[in-house]
Design a protein around this nucleic acid. Structure first.
Lengths: 117, 117
DNA sequence: CCAATCGTTCGAAAATTACCGAACGATAAT
DNA sequence: ATTATCGTTCGGTAATTTTCGAACGATTGG
């Protein structure tokens, strides 16, 4: 038995608007958030199967530290979900409004979705 | 007569969401946008009277190039206004939602409001 | 126990951004 | 015309962010 992985998350009241906007200003992270909003809790590797693991950890950690996502260890894997309620409590409608203006055509090519769907 | 100052602005359709979010993710620029939304067109110097001029130009140019503000030369001065309609056409409700979640207590000290603290 | 897999951390490099003084051109006022 | 004011550009430095390989600890499966 060893200490399971734990993750530190900011309190809802400590989530800052400029930091959230910064988190969402990165195309890769914005695409991650879009997927999380659409699919609920997902395995972290689904957010960037083609990225180096350390790069993926960097972005997910940033999203976590800035209060955008909640991270949970499950075995070897790492489950991630959007802090939708917390964000909506703090900044009502922000995530929805941002994602409504999101154009998937400009999404970065870090995922599996291809032409012929 | 000499050539008046001109400013290049992106077309509305070329305004990109991640770039707008990046523009708003800087506390100084977010405060500028808040003032522009509240006061309409303002002299650029009102957006940061205590900042070095080159720093002020840097931020206003960034806001302009990313499609957030419209800049117009008037004599020696430089009038700036929010591209509210363009932004609302491209990303409906975004600016309003962002500013609704804005907490003035965390505004940077680059303006005239002083020590109530 | 052994090997494979996963996420994290560390370290360093590259890229981007922020910041500001100084010089410059344009404009306004006297 | 002369002076003062304003915004821009240039040049460089500092700070931040991104990226990724390598080593490590934890977990799963045989």
């Amino acid at each position: 038995m060893a200490a399971a992985r734990t993750y530190v998350h900011p309190e809802t009241r400590d989530i800052a608007l400029p930091r959230v906007l910064f988190a969402l200003s990165e195309p890769l992270r914005l695409e991650m958030v879009r997927r999380l909003a659409a699919e609920g809790e997902v395995d972290s590797i689904e957010l960037g199967p083609d990225l180096p693991r350390s790069t993926l950890t960097h972005h997910t950690s940033l999203l976590r530290e800035l209060g955008v996502v909640f991270v949970r260890a499950e075995g070897r894997k790492c489950m991630i979900r959007l802090r939708g309620e917390d964000l909506d409590e703090r900044f009502p409608g922000l995530i929805d409004t941002v994602l409504a203006g999101y154009d998937p055509d400009h999404a970065p090519a870090a995922h599996g979705e291809e032409a012929g769907e």
